[in-house]
Amino acid sequence: MQELHVSLDPAELDPATQKLREPLEAQLSSALQRAAETIERDYHGESVAEVSRRLLDVARSSLHPDIATGFQPDERELRQAAQAVVNAARS
């Protein structure tokens, strides 16, 4: 499974969040990576769309509620991550 990384656009962040950008990216990336590993182990033929939804749900469940609420990953990138999970699970 490829390493997943979340990047935050500095232009979309308020000044306080900009100061915390690197640790926040690390936390989000870690949550998404753990979610992908969990789903890959428990994959039972779900569609890429379902895996994408599960990735977001599982990743959010491991985050502080305030961070989870604000975690809105790019849909295209989330779908690519879901496709990678599906491909890895089928291998």
Results as ranks from 00 to 15, higher is better:
Arg34Asn: 14
Val86Gly: 14
Leu78Cys: 11
Gln72Asp: 15
Leu24Val: 08
Glu46Ala: 05
Gln72Ser: 15
Ala81Asp: 07
Glu25Leu: 01
Gly45His: 08
Val58Leu: 06
Glu40Met: 14
Glu75Tyr: 05
Glu12Thr: 04
Leu78Asn: 06
Ile39Tyr: 08
Leu13Arg: 01
Arg79Ala: 13
Ala26Leu: 03
Lys19Ala: 14
Pro23Val: 01
Ser61Ile: 02
Leu63Tyr: 00
Leu13Met: 05
Gln83Leu: 14
Ser29Ala: 00
Ala89Leu: 13
Leu32Ala: 02
Glu25Gly: 04
Thr69Asn: 14
Asp66Tyr: 08
Met1Lys: 01
Leu63Val: 09
Leu20Met: 14
Thr69Gly: 12
Ala31Pro: 08
Asn87Phe: 07
Ser91Leu: 09
Thr69Tyr: 11
Ala89Asp: 12
Gln80Asp: 14
Tyr43Gly: 02
Leu20Thr: 09
Phe71Gln: 02
Ser52Trp: 00
Arg34Cys: 09
Gln83Thr: 11
Thr17Asp: 05
Arg54Trp: 02
Glu25Pro: 01
Asn87Arg: 15
Asp57Gln: 07
Thr38Ile: 09
Ala11Gln: 08
Leu56Val: 15
Lys19Met: 10
Val48Arg: 13
Ala68Pro: 07
Arg34Ile: 06
Glu22Arg: 06
Ile39Thr: 12
Gly70Val: 10
Val85Leu: 04
Ala26Gln: 11
Leu55Asp: 01
Asp14His: 14
Ser30Ala: 13
Leu13Cys: 02
Glu12Leu: 07
Ile39Ser: 07
Glu37Ile: 06
Ala88Ile: 07
Leu56Arg: 15
Arg90Cys: 01
Thr17Arg: 13
Ile67Gly: 03
Gln2Phe: 13
Pro23Ala: 03
Pro10Arg: 14
His64Gln: 09
Gln33Val: 10
Arg41Cys: 09
Leu28Lys: 09
Leu56Glu: 15
Glu50Lys: 13
Arg60Gln: 11
Pro23Thr: 04
Asp42Ala: 11
Gln72His: 15
Glu75Trp: 04
Asn87Asp: 15
Asp74Pro: 06
Leu56Trp: 12
Ser7His: 13
Ala35Asp: 03
Met1Ile: 05
Thr69Val: 04
Leu63Gly: 05
His64Trp: 03
Leu13Ile: 02
Glu77Gly: 13
Ala36Asn: 10
Arg41Ala: 14
Glu77Lys: 14
Ala36Ile: 05
Asp74Phe: 01
His44Ile: 03
Tyr43Met: 03
Leu4Gly: 00
Val85Ile: 05
Val85Gly: 04
Pro15Tyr: 06
Pro23Asp: 06
Pro23Ile: 03
Asp42Lys: 12
Thr17Leu: 10
Glu75Arg: 14
Glu50His: 10
His44Arg: 14
Ile67Thr: 12
Ala81His: 08
Gln80Glu: 15
Leu56Tyr: 12
Ala81Gln: 09
Phe71Ile: 01
Ala16Tyr: 10
Leu13Val: 01
Ala11Val: 00
Ala84Asp: 08
Val6His: 03
Leu20Glu: 13
Thr17Phe: 08
Val86Phe: 15
Leu78Tyr: 02
Glu25Tyr: 02
Pro65Trp: 12
Ala88Asn: 11
Arg34Trp: 07
Pro23Gly: 01
Val6Ala: 02
Leu32Arg: 06
Pro10Ser: 08
Glu46Cys: 10
Gln72Ile: 15
Glu40Gly: 11
